[in-house]
Design a protein around this nucleic acid. Sequence first.
DNA 1: GTGACAGTTCGATTTATTTTGAACTGTAGC
DNA 2: GCTACAGTTCAAAATAAATCGAACTGTCAC
Lengths: 100, 100
Amino acid sequence: MVGVELDHPATDALRIEDVLAALNHPARLRVVRTLASNDELTCQEILPDMTKSSASHHWRMLRESGIVEQRREGRYLYLRLRKADLDTRFPGLLDAVIKG
Amino acid sequence: MVGVELDHPATDALRIEDVLAALNHPARLRVVRTLASNDELTCQEILPDMTKSSASHHWRMLRESGIVEQRREGRYLYLRLRKADLDTRFPGLLDAVIKG
DNA sequence: GTGACAGTTCGATTTATTTTGAACTGTAGC
DNA sequence: GCTACAGTTCAAAATAAATCGAACTGTCAC
């Protein structure tokens, strides 16, 4: 179901608990770091060595916590870091994660 | 073994992965928030409604990730947030967590 | 020294999270 | 319409993390 529309939480609805949970996985951390230096990428470009269903699980965690935005274009989903939103709501957090 | 000496990582050895993992639990998040507004507390004062072994597990996660310092005084262990260290290494992170 | 207390450690159980494959939806190209 | 492809969903299996009780160490007060 590429076509089901994706639910993105509003900036002021982001919960630190959800963001921390989403960041607490090596693959998702890698996604965040990859997106930090690449403006927009398709799902497959980011986690090529993972089954589609596992990857999809991670997209969901990242999307529902508000860390990434998924935009559909044709049959691809492009991912983008919601850096501005996260910086507004939790200043410093994302930079700490990206720097590592 | 109250007497075994506790290993605290140095400030520049703190790893964001460990800190994120330690923060990813409601009880530990509560501990951090409690310590943010109370300078030093004994273990029992912070998590009174938890078995001693579960609580001890959480102290360990918090200590080994570098979030808290445990200092022994008599038969009590006092906990203190390593706020300055965390602010140095990951500026903004702790404030985001404390504000919630 | 004895008893009570603060915390740790160990192993076993429970619970939460991740992973996977199979079946599916929507888009694109022919 | 048919086939190929991108990604989602579901249920089941594997893995990781939290919880608990029991046995333990060190300190304190008597």
